[in-house]
Amino acid sequence: MRVTQGCFSFLPDLTDEQITAQVQYCLDKGWAVNIEFTDDPHPRNTYWEMWGLPMFDLRDAAGILKELNDCRRTYGDRYIRLSGFDATHGWESLRISFIVNRPKDEPGFRLLRQEVDGRSVRYTTVSYAVDRPEGSRYE
């Protein structure tokens, strides 16, 4: 399967050149770019690990791409996403978020159904990846 979170998951994987253009868009808007990675892409796993702090002061797309490539060297077998954070009053949240790296094989999710009162069902989504211990999920 293919996890389709983020802004561009339905397009072919972005090239470094395309990623740089999106980063430049964020910088032009005055947003802070953030790199995060995870080995559990559960749709409600909000807090991916941060590759350092959001880059509030790095205003150079090439520099950000270098950070991304450093992150890829260490965590190339995991999901990595880039996001742009807008601290403007009234928003103070992400303005864009997109996946820039995926494990070679994406195992996806198991849907558990607990049949309860009447015909109601309690649903639980579980990443197959978490069947294995953290850190060795895509080996």
Partner: peptide
Amino acid sequence: WRDRFLYCMEAVNRAQAATGEI
């Protein structure tokens, strides 16, 4: 309405698991 809600939420949860998206 109950029937609609039950089947719709089966659909929503299946789609969530199939895509990893809310």
